[in-house]
Design a protein around this nucleic acid. Structure first.
Lengths: 360, 360
DNA sequence: CTGAAAGCGCTTACAG
DNA sequence: CTGAAAGCGCTTACAG
């Protein structure tokens, strides 16, 4: 028996004096219903507050027409690749929803090559996916993809970073500006305004990533609000990604000055900097970085990194699939945009945030 | 059509040469099946790796027999009560699973009165609930309840705190010892071993709560591992919960010593201490507390509290219901025990963890 | 002890 | 343009 406060399709049909087939046509905007009937049915749906039973709907559709999701993310080069984490979350969500009829296909692009993104996105457009999960590294190409997806009425969620795009998009990612502010707070607590601050952007083949820049801006904004802190004592260093960097040349200030130092590394590679610094006698040094990769965790355990900021990459992927499922089955788009918390990690709580921990 | 890698009940029936009714009887351990048939069916279920389709199962059962959960938590005295938060999460999960056929009934006990817990738990036992969510404040009474629930084969999950109970129980809560260690780390970063540490236990009518004690132990354990820190410089103060405490009398050390101070308040009432300290000229003072209540948040915003530790109370409730649903429908108990992350909150990231944010 | 049939609420292919 | 019927996979009440 149906719950008294939520009528079913049968009830609606009876009230409208038509068959359930017609109700279904109206609900799905399928052709073949007279304007008059349609209006009458819609009115009754309104009045009764009818809500589709997704369970029943999926029971039928899981067997006949799966929800198909395409996922376009950067290549996964090795086991410790960052992109394994969103993928883990995506797979977990798909596993949980398997019974409901859902499947995912992966496409990979080269993070340094916009053309590979374009190629792969075209492959996706050839097929008839219901939804797409991707990463908006390349502005122009993302916009083009977005436009075509919109034309084809295919839902899309972007993970990891936020770009200003010309077409409206859904984002599940961390606000990098806020993350930078949090980093400012943490380093200030350790230094007490008594020392020098360094923002280290470790560049890649394409220069600096957009969210690294946003993190730096947030960091500086934090100190700009404090009258006590001179902006002159915050040095930005753009460190080329190169195995044979001579720190003596690139960052003499970091090497030579003897004051306590607060270092904010704006991407996942804080371990790189610490690798390089190994050869130098260091003065008092505090470091805040991003992401729980094995190298960073080793330095965290060794008290060389004081804080890491976590972006919940697994959860981003997980939430994207769950959100898309909810949208596709219930027209509910509220979970397609999520501002991921800025998790603060220290040695003593790191374990909770690893291994695909999926708490929000 | 069924997915080829997961046979349905029909397929099993055909392979066993019996009807689907018989399969169902075997699956649910219902009487009326000959030993021989049962064995044959079980063997085929084994071989094929049959998994019940929960979707189909719930579609039928949602209409005929709901999953009924009883929730026994402390009284909610006002809008800002801590217990509103788990309740919010419980309600959210029930809302999400409504279609699957689930309902919750609340029972409340007085946190200072074990008898009220006992009374209410007896009320619950009179009804035929499928599962219980509760809080193990009282050891003896919790054990008794647990025993009776076990006899009646009713699943139970405890939230908030962990007690050593005689009967096996499921817990979704934060490890208070670890939370104390994190607090130690945070205060040490701010003080740099240069000052005094205070652990403040704010007592209630029944003295100190078990998890407050565990937090203190974790805090002290953190410093015990550091050779550099003298345990003598960590003072424990048990502060009676009383509106007219004279701090001058109760904690002269905190008032009179002029060194920088690191204060760890082991429960949600750090705001109480700060209220009381208002009347004194304070030396440099750093505070780590628990929970994002409005009073604490106001002090956090005012830079009087440096860090708050969050226990994700909403998520605890949410996860309990989700975990119980999964257990009751799929015999999967993996989500009935969750070690909640020790979230570190500062002024700049607090917003993410409020308002029933449900990320893990 | 076992089977055949009806039903959960929605979807679809077919008939008219 | 509309309806009647079959079916998704599982559960249950009834018949034998």
């Amino acid at each position: 028996m149906k719950n008294e406060n939520s009528p079913g399709i049968k009830e609606i049909a009876k009230l409208a004096g038509v068959s359930i087939g017609t109700i279904d046509r109206v609900l799905h905007n399928r052709p073949g219903v007279s304007e008059k009937t349609k209006e009458k049915v819609l009115k009754i749906i309104q009045q009764t507050g009818y809500k589709k039973n997704v369970l029943a709907s999926r029971l039928k559709l899981a067997a006949t027409r799966k929800i198909q999701i395409a996922c376009l993310i950067p290549e996964i080069k090795d086991e410790s690749s960052y992109w394994k984490l969103p993928q883990y979350g995506i797979n977990k969500a798909v596993e949980e929803l398997k019974e409901q009829g859902i499947s995912v296909s992966y496409y990979y692009f080269n993070s340094f090559d916009p053309r590979s993104f374009k190629e792969q996105s075209n492959e996706i457009l050839k097929m008839e996916y219901d939804a797409v999960v991707s990463v908006p590294f390349f502005k122009t190409e993302s916009d083009l993809f977005l436009q075509k997806l919109e034309e084809a009425e295919i839902a899309v969620v972007f993970l990891d970073s936020r770009q200003e795009l010309n077409f409206k998009a859904n984002f599940i990612n961390q606000d990098s500006f806020k993350a930078g502010q949090v980093a400012g707070r943490l380093l200030e607590g350790l230094l007490k305004g008594n020392g020098l601050y360094f923002v280290i952007n470790i560049l890649n083949e394409r220069g600096i990533q957009v969210n690294n820049l946003q993190r730096e801006q947030g960091f500086r904004a934090y100190f700009a609000e404090k009258a006590s802190q001179s902006q002159n004592d915050i040095y930005t260093i753009n460190l080329p990604f190169d195995d044979h960097v001579d720190l003596q040349e690139v960052i003499p200030k970091l090497i030579e000055r003897k004051e306590p130092k607060g270092i904010f590394v704006t991407n996942a590679r804080s371990f790189r900097l610490l690798d390089l610094l190994k050869d130098y006698q260091e003065s008092e040094l505090y470091l805040v970085g991003f992401d729980l990769n094995v190298q960073n965790l080793a330095y965290l355990k060794a008290d060389k990194i004081q804080f890491l900021i976590n972006q919940k990459p697994e959860y981003q992927g997980y939430a994207a699939v769950k959100g898309l499922y909810k949208y596709l089955t219930s027209q509910d788009h509220t979970e397609l945009n999520i501002d991921i918390p800025v998790d603060i990690i220290v040695k003593e709580n790191a374990e909770f945030y690893m291994n695909g921990h999926m708490t929000p």
